[in-house]
Design a protein around this nucleic acid. Sequence first.
DNA 1: TTGAAATTTGGACAATGTCCTAAACATACT
DNA 2: AGTATGTTTAGGACATTGTCCAAATTTCAA
Lengths: 201, 201
Amino acid sequence: MTKEEKIVGKALEMFNERGIEYVGLRELAATLGIRVGNITYYFPTKDDLVNRLAQDLSALNERTMGEENRSLFSFLNQYRHVFENHVQYRCLLLSFVHLMEQNKVISARYKETEKKRYSTIVANLSSLQAFGYLVPEADTDFLVSVVTLAARFWISEAALSFRHLSPPEQITQYITLLAKLFIPYATEKGKDDIQRFLASL
Amino acid sequence: MTKEEKIVGKALEMFNERGIEYVGLRELAATLGIRVGNITYYFPTKDDLVNRLAQDLSALNERTMGEENRSLFSFLNQYRHVFENHVQYRCLLLSFVHLMEQNKVISARYKETEKKRYSTIVANLSSLQAFGYLVPEADTDFLVSVVTLAARFWISEAALSFRHLSPPEQITQYITLLAKLFIPYATEKGKDDIQRFLASL
DNA sequence: TTGAAATTTGGACAATGTCCTAAACATACT
DNA sequence: AGTATGTTTAGGACATTGTCCAAATTTCAA
């Protein structure tokens, strides 16, 4: 394990625990038993360190969203894995708004992936319609909006209102929400998938 | 207008524009033509200043949520006003998570109002069922969860994805989302209310 | 007018992110 | 082996931040 990896790993750990803004570089360095300038050698600014974490999460998410899903069950399951990634990098999502406002690298890259993600969801929902999981008259634009909102901010709300629950319990809470959202727009086949998915949690 | 009010007003203005974290007390003081220590006389810490803003928003929201609503139309309309309040104090909502993690006064008070707000929504939805706007078998717990999530974070997402829209357009976007959410759970009478509400935007 | 209270000032303090220079180390080439 | 080159580490300087305090000033009632 290189020193750079050690820095990234411990940074993620401490950022997740106490928040990016509340962990100073000196404290991170002290925990690692190194000097501050040593961190800034690998990551000239704190933002560069955060960028690295964001890049890692992005790669992780792309890997889990990679496979085409041909059923509502696998669609929901994919989101369950995305939510697990979110927990692993929760510091980023809890500071999402600030990072976007302040960190140009992150906001630029996010603008890219946002479009891609949006069209991916649209395509997924269309194909779920085509495969007979969602009724043809379903308002997919509406569904995309709600899914996007929930996926972005579920962990923030969980941190506020469900801190007493463990991360897996929090995931169950919000992935259930997502599943229930689709019930009114699902065909009988789709409803079966949703019930099967809910039972699998 | 007292000096305290001047400080609060200009602080809200600058915080809304550039974010609470990115406006220093020295800059606020310079804009007001006063010294830093002068601000800390009225508000010993920056958190105290933010607390004041949070208190103001809270009072504003309680005033707009005050009246009982006896139709789905008025329920949605109430939320439209809440969203307008959110725009007015958007700096608080954009820093919501951090404030809750860091500011004990705000988080303590929010825990109080959260319970109250939750039971208010539940009561509202129940009475909308009783008055025949929502079908009896509607999953009100689910609806409450989505409404809560949307109300908390719509403005954060708008700041990320719809910055090119004006605040009124952003409100329309998300209040429409909220209205559409209820369609599958609304009676014919309720659906009429929703359509009437959407037409009124 | 006087005296006490309220307000304002100016600066000190520790902590933060950033930046820079010199020392230490490692590696490859002669 | 010795040297030169590039990488890594150490240590401290710098400006900025929120906070705090004592003295100076202003306000206002007795």
